[in-house]
Nucleic acid binder design. Structure first.
Lengths: 349, 349
DNA sequence: TTGAAAGCGCTAACAG
DNA sequence: CTGTTAGCGCTTTCAA
């Protein structure tokens, strides 16, 4: 009782398979597989024949089949908060570099700070059978990531300190960074400071807020009075513009503004200027990330610098190590940020 | 003669498979597949049992197996020249949006203008069995792409006009854009213009150069004299800095500078400034792409604006259409750019 | 509505 | 050194 199983839908002529190559070369299927994977086990003559057939048929091995059978995994996924943010692209560069060195490849995705998109990519990558993932979580709920890790998928938290023993992370001390930024503003005699922040579902927003509060309190100020917080929905230039508009509409604006990142600061400065306010005279501005154009802006932006590329490199290393033989234990790595003072805060000499 | 076939290397406990679920739920393997793919064909009771088992075992279907068997493809690859360039990330945004609407997913990669890296990703994506790829070629040799397309993989050229009938492309008229930029500089009485350009292996560099030559000739100038071309190896800020350094070292620098893109212009302006030159008084500068921070720079940058996001959207649409039922014929789409005059060229009112 | 079985393309034993 | 074969996890007939 031989039945014909269903066939996959085909675009164009069927792709050549290993057995087509075998037939063309007049050898067995296993031999073709050998020239592909262990060429030294095959006689030069046969190898040449097979190679010719491969060339002739433009044979490209089917990765799904190979992975299904052999579990050969050299792909790593990264899910970043916002791929349009130079900070994250620089991190991605670091990741890619390290991965390429180890002959692995990166598949990149942007969650756009949306937990649902994040979940979609998490699942896609898992189904695809990646070696592991580097993720900048878009949500505070790390449970899905923990489960992933329990299921044997390598997970490294990126730009976010792991709250759990079981998860590796590579991050920068955002609390300290924000505190430095705000201390700087306080040292310039600002006593009420606006803070354009993103949703509290994003760790960076929580931590930078905490840093600000800490600095305010250390200076003997009451955060409820000294901090004017504006929450915007996306951490980019549009968000910054919206934030300033809201801030100015509310009247009695503070004399200084701390922005959760440089992109937001960029938008904020644009809006400030279009409202006729001078930076830093009418409003001092400090950003976060020290992206590459920060120093070149109309008013060079005071910002908090992070070892961006290193962040990516170390995260990739960690993942590779955790997935490799020996299964290294989870590690939490934290870098320290650095304040770069420029004209936008009025604090430059 | 029953032999035990080799097993795949396993990280941790083996991932649950569909037959584990079947066993747990006390049904057959085919039924589990049905609740996954055609839930309506299964009685509510059975479905519930199976769903419970899936939940209990944290079952995640194996994408490789599914794809191998069914050819279910919803993944699209994009290989961009430089993911750190805001122009390309904006394009990526456009692509992702459209793809998400069609319930497909994007896998992103950056060739960093390196044909070898490009080839690696091309192959990786093909092995993975993507529906198609959107690529900004890092080389003038399109043969690999054509072959890919002949093998049935959808290919759309991004930001590069297709020279071949068989390949779709979505691009912006770079020749016209560069011509506009240079005409602008000529109208400001500059008669010798430096051009920081990238390698001629990149189409954008070739076309923008052609546009410059065209504008120069149209003005009755000899390009050999009027154009001072500096070739840098990467189209980013570092390249721009290096270009200016080289330009100034050569002596008798022109009075104007056209940069192949805004990132290059950013670096060029930084170098110009560090050499004590004023923009635009000592050197007028024009960039290309009109990235989001162009208007916010110390000296706002005159640049050529392109319908960036649309580029990505249309390219994704084309790919989806070409891969969908009906197999639409290849199309060449070209947008027109627009000059945005700001202070850096000295041409703003 | 459910179960049994074929087979997608490949790798890795193993026999010859 | 080469061929044969089992089976990775899944979808999809077809039969019951």
């Amino acid at each position: 009782m031989v039945t014909t199983a269903g066939r996959a839908p085909q675009r164009g002529p069927r792709r050549a398979s290993i057995s087509d190559v075998a037939q063309e070369a007049g050898v067995s299927l296993g031999t073709v597989s050998n020239v592909l994977n262990r060429p030294d086990r095959v006689s030069p003559t046969t190898r040449a024949k097979v190679l010719a057939a491969i060339e002739h048929l433009s044979f490209v091995p089917n990765g799904s089949a190979r992975q299904l059978r052999a579990g050969t995994i050299t792909t790593v996924g990264a899910i970043l908060l916002d791929i349009a943010n130079p900070f994250f692209t620089e991190v991605a560069r670091g990741i890619e570099d390290r991965l390429a060195q180890a002959d692995h490849t990166l598949m990149l995705a942007s969650s756009d700070e949306d937990p649902e998109r994040e979940a979609r990519y998490l699942r896609l990558f898992e189904e695809h059978g990646v070696l592991g993932m580097l993720v900048t979580p878009a949500s505070t709920d790390l449970e899905p990531l923990l489960e992933l890790s329990r299921r044997g998928v390598g997970v490294v938290l990126l730009d976010r300190t792991s709250p759990a023993e079981e998860l590796s992370s590579v991050a920068v001390d955002d609390v300290a960074g924000a505190a430095m930024a705000v201390e700087h503003l306080l040292s310039l005699s600002h006593r009420r400071i606006a803070f354009i922040n993103g949703p509290q579902s994003i760790a960076q927003c929580v931590d930078r807020r905490a840093g600000m509060v800490r600095a305010l309190e250390a200076a003997g100020l009451d955060p409820d009075e000294a901090m004017v917080e504006i929450t915007v929905s996306s951490l980019n230039a549009e968000g910054g513009e919206a934030g300033v508009t809201e801030l100015l509409a509310a009247g009695t604006a503070p004399s200084a503004l701390f922005c959760v990142n440089d992109l937001t600061a960029l938008g904020a400065m644009r809006a400030l200027r279009s409202h006729g306010l001078a930076i830093p005279e009418d409003m001092a501005v400090v950003g976060y990330d020290d992206v590459n154009f920060a120093s070149m802006l109309m008013t060079p932006l005071t910002s908090v610098r992070q070892p961006t590329r290193q962040l990516g490199e170390v995260a990739a290393d960690l993942l590779l190590k955790a997935a490799g033989p020996g299964m290294a234990a989870p590690q939490r790595i934290e870098f320290q940020p650095e304040l770069v003072v420029r004209a936008s805060s009025g604090g430059a000499r």
